[in-house]
């Protein structure tokens, strides 16, 4: 199952940590919100989980999951919206795991794709080029692709940014549906109200972990204050991390 194990994970850029010494386990089937101020390392953590950023230190284990069992929705997708591809074809790329390089898209796959497009409320958009969609519609398309990826671990980076309330409600319902199917879902979020109402578990991150546990216990004003006070800037003249020294000395 899709359990994510963090062993003293430090992730960052140019030796500067953006996520510092994170330990813990995301249980299989958990629905976890990752919250924290801008620059807290939320996106960095998610990039580490899906494997596009290698940890500077420590390790992340996905419990034997293949990278194809992970669906990732980045915050600012590097999508070339001017590329001439239809909504149908774009969503169909979510079937990569089944089709690979050459696999054909048969009748049942077509039905799946159409069903995915319908479940995000985009019936009738199948033949539209993705360049003609609005921001919210594009986000629905991306959710449809995640739906088709049929992944046991789903990682969403601020999926509801700049999305109107109607679309948010629709897409949030999908997230809860995934949770109901036993998939593990991690989402970086800013809307605390949404986290309180819909996510059972929360990780408050401010470079280092501030608190992690059941949302009701973790999402307190005190913890959020601690997170807010985090210093964002990297210190160019910072020393090598002392925690590691202490540990190597102990060893």
């Amino acid at each position: 199952m899709a359990a994510v194990h963090f062993h003293n994970v430090t992730l960052g850029y140019d030796r500067h940590p953006a996520v510092h010494h994170l330990n813990g386990v995301v249980a299989p089937g958990a629905l976890v919100a990752v919250v924290g101020p801008n620059g807290a390392g939320k996106s960095t953590l998610l990039r580490g989980i899906v494997g596009i950023l290698r940890p500077l230190d420590g390790s992340i284990h996905l419990g034997g999951l293949d990278s194809r069992d992970v669906a990732y929705l980045p915050q600012s997708a590097e999508i070339d919206r001017s590329f001439p591809i239809s909504v149908f074809d774009f969503v169909a790329t979510g079937l990569w795991r089944a089709t690979g390089l050459f696999g054909g898209i048969g009748k049942s796959a077509r039905d799946k794709i159409l069903h995915a497009i319908a479940s995000v409320g985009l019936n009738g958009f199948e033949n539209r080029p993705i360049g003609t969609l609005s921001g919210g519609q594009m986000q629905r398309v991306l959710f449809a692709r995640v739906l088709l990826q049929d992944a046991s671990l789903i990682v969403l980076d601020e999926p509801f940014n700049a999305i109107d309330s109607k679309t948010t409600i629709d897409l949030l319902a999908l997230v809860k549906h995934w949770h109901g199917e036993g998939r593990t879902v991690l989402a970086a979020l800013h809307d605390m109200e949404m986290v309180r109402n819909h996510f059972s578990e929360t990780l408050v991150l401010a470079r280092g972990p501030v608190a992690w546990g059941p949302t009701a216990e973790v999402l307190t004003p005190e913890n959020l204050m601690v997170a807010m006070r985090m210093c964002e800037a990297f210190d160019d003249s910072a020393e090598a991390c002392a925690a590691d020294d202490a540990r190597s000395r102990a060893a």
Binding site: V50, I52, R68, Y72, E78, I85, F90, T93
Partner: peptide, 15 residues
């Protein structure tokens, strides 16, 4: 090639 042209990050995560 098509997927890499449209969404390189996605292709990197699946293949």
């Amino acid at each position: 090639l098509v997927i890499e042209s449209v969404d390189p990050l996605f292709l990197r995560t699946v293949s």
